[in-house]
Structure formats: C-alpha cells, structure tokens
Design a binder for these strands. Structure first.
Lengths: 209, 209
DNA sequence: CCAAAAGTGTTCGGCTTACACCCATGT
DNA sequence: ACATGGGTGTAAGCCGAACACTTTTGG
C-alpha cells in the first residue's frame, strides 16, 4: 500500500492567510492545483519526509510542523493510497519558493482557493481548524513571525487567521498572561506614531502539551 | 510501505478504565502484550479496517470509533511500517471476546498495564488523553453506557476515566446543560435508597464538531 | 425508624468581553 | 499643532468549583 505525505504550508502575507499550492502539469488531475506532497524515501520517517518536502518547497526548516490526519481514498475512492497530512507555518520573509516553472508553486489566499485536486479541500479545512485551535493556547505563531515583533503585528497575524478583529487591550492581556512572550526592551519606530515595544517568544520551540 | 491499523479498544468495568490487549505467541515480540491490529484488505478503507478489527475482537459494531494518530517506527525504528491508530469505546455488557486461546484477548486496567510490544504505550497515552478531552464536550460516552442509565452510573464512568471524583451537583449541571441527555421518565430502584431517574443520550451517533 | 442512594441551590473567584482615553513620535 | 499608531484600566456577565441538607425508598 502506498503511503504519501501531504504538507499544508501556511503563511500570513498582506493580511491574508495563504497556502502554498502547486500546479499539476501532468495526469492525474492535470491542470488543477494541489497541496505539495511526496513519498517517504527509504529509512525516512514520515515527519522527516514532511520536513524534507517543506525544505524543498520553501527552503525553511526550523518551523512548526505537526501531523494532522491520515486520509485514504483522497484519490477519489480508488483506494490503495494513504496520505498522512502535516501542517507547517512559515514566515514568508524567510521563504524562497522553489523555482520549478512546471509546477508554478504559489501562495493562494485560503479564503479564495481554486478547485483542488484529490479532495485536498478536506485537508485544508482540517488544517485551518487545527491552526486556529493551536493559536489559542500555544506559541505556534512564533513560526509566522520575525524574531522580534510588536504586539500590533502579532495581533494583525491573529486577525488574518481568524478572519475577524480583536480588541487591542484584551488581545494584549491574553498574550502577555500566557507567559509565552517577553519584552526585548527595544522599540521600533514606524513612520509617524509612538514607537512600539518589541517582543520575542520566550521559546521558539514547539510547545508540547 | 506497509500500512497497519491499530485499535485501542477501551471500556469501563468495575470502576476501572480497561483496554483490550492480545498476547503475542509468536515473534516478533513473543510473550508480550499488544494492541489488536492488522492490515487493511484490498478495497477496504482504513476506518473500515479498524471497524472490522473491532468486530472481530468484540462482536460490537455501532460504537464510537475515531482516528487517533499515525505512528511510524513503532516496530523499533526499523522503519518500513506505518501504523494508523484508532480508538473505540465499548460497553462490556455487549461484548463477547473472541475465543482465540492463542492470543488470550483480555481486558487490562489502564492504570496497571503489562509491558507492551512495539512501543504501544505511546499509543495508549495518546488514546487516554483524547478520550478525556472528548468526554468534556461531546456525547462519546454513549458508547460506554447501556441504552438508558442513571446519572450516578454516568458519573461513575466519568470518574473511572479521569481517575478522580466529581461533585455530584456540578456533574449533573454540566451534563444536563449540554443538552446531550434526555430523561426517559422511568426510574430504576436498586435495593435500598431512592429510585433514580433514567436518562438516555439524545443522540447515539458520534457528534461532529 | 434507620440506612442507603437520589436529588437539589447558592456563593465565590477567575476569566472573558466590552468599552474610551492618553502617550510618544513624525511631519 | 495635528496626525498616526502605541499603550493602558475597569465594570459586567459567564463559568467552574466548593459546599450540606432534604427526599424517597428498602429493610
């Protein structure tokens, strides 16, 4: 039985949650978009295969990567293939997309996806739901942010992912009370307006619950 | 690459959370206990394979069954095999264990497990954690109870699974306010003491969140 | 009438939500 | 001085935790 790995690579750019898709230029499902994926090599674990796929597509490696769910029958009920899906969060500023003209790897807004091959919509829905859950009580956002950042920047990322606005004071209280952030003591001026305090995540490793 | 299905079959008997294990009478891991599992047949989905395994071992079919996690390297790092794990909840009163003397299928208290083959401890931990989570906000317990039951019986099951006692009044409030229970209007006397109201789950289908 | 189990309300603290003004800087 | 974005506190409602007595039955 074939075991494939699928990776949902998510990022936030320009106030939008986006996912990396590749264009299928060959059958099956030629002409439609799909999540990047592949097959584990000999003596490679599933997580390693997912991480390798991520590096191949984006060049980044030390980011949040989590197993999502294992699907079968994604390739349209014909069986015989199992897809173990993962999701990863990357900071687009660190990404250099693979130059693979045939596949046209591109970021697509999650709110306006093209038709996807292999029922990849199911995988996407699952990924977004899990991401929103994890954001509530973990530090996974570290993987979407620069090393240091302002609380306004962090809030903007959260708002993009949840698709709604939060109250500034409540957002700050929640974040700071979780103890996952620490002030750097530095500030950043951005044109007009009072300079913002810069924060870092106390840990940039995935939290284990 | 081999894909196996593993099933963590849980129940509550005599105030204890227990899991169904089989005894390995052949290599690998001869002599130790393990979770039941097997390989999907041709044209069988993973969930179907897990459900079939469950029926083979216990005879029950319409119970709660959920995918847990996909492990690799369970058979000790040698790779080449992936195990998709599921967990199921059964009411022991409806179970007839398979008469397979070679495997000695038996219920083992989760709090005092024998050494398990293939790192099955990891799978167990995962299953128990998920079960506790699901109990909080879904009706999965329907799968552990008779058709109708008293709130005291339900509370006893919850206490067994969480390994601690709950306050009677708070427990009842929580359960009834979730809207997953309905009174049958009947009562049940059990020796001395005031007869208890009997309740049913409003739905005995898995909740989809 | 006593033992046994069922049933029932209220209080407190913590958490989430809603909400409006002052502060520091650039132009 | 004014425009721009950063930063702060408080009150109200909701939820979970703690806690003790009355009710109904069997023996």
């Amino acid at each position: 039985m074939n075991v494939a790995v699928l990776v949902v690579i998510l990022t936030v750019v320009e106030g939008e949650l986006r996912v990396l898709l590749i264009h299928r230029s060959a059958e099956p499902a030629m002409g439609s978009w799909a999540l990047p994926g592949g097959f584990p090599q000999a003596r490679e674990t599933l997580a390693d295969a997912a991480a390798r796929k991520l590096v191949e597509e984006t060049g980044v490696s030390d980011v949040y990567l989590e197993q999502l769910f294992t699907f079968d029958g994604l390739d349209d009920g014909t069986q015989g293939s199992v897809a173990v899906s993962y999701f990863a969060l990357v900071d687009t500023r660190r990404v250099r997309l693979r130059d693979e003209p045939a596949w046209e790897p591109r970021w697509h807004p999650v709110q306006a996806l093209p038709p996807l091959a292999f029922n990849n919509e199911r995988v996407m829905d699952y990924a977004v739901e899990r991401l929103r859950n994890k954001l509530q009580y973990t530090n996974v956002a570290y993987s979407l942010m620069a090393q240091s950042f302002t609380l306004s920047e962090l809030q903007a990322v959260y708002e993009s992912i949840f698709g709604r606005r939060f109250d500034k004071r409540n957002f700050r209280r929640r974040m700071l009370s979780q103890g996952i952030l620490k002030p750097t003591g530095k500030t950043m001026a951005r044109g007009a307006g009072r300079p913002a305090e810069l924060y870092e995540f106390t840990s940039r490793a995935p939290m284990v619950l």
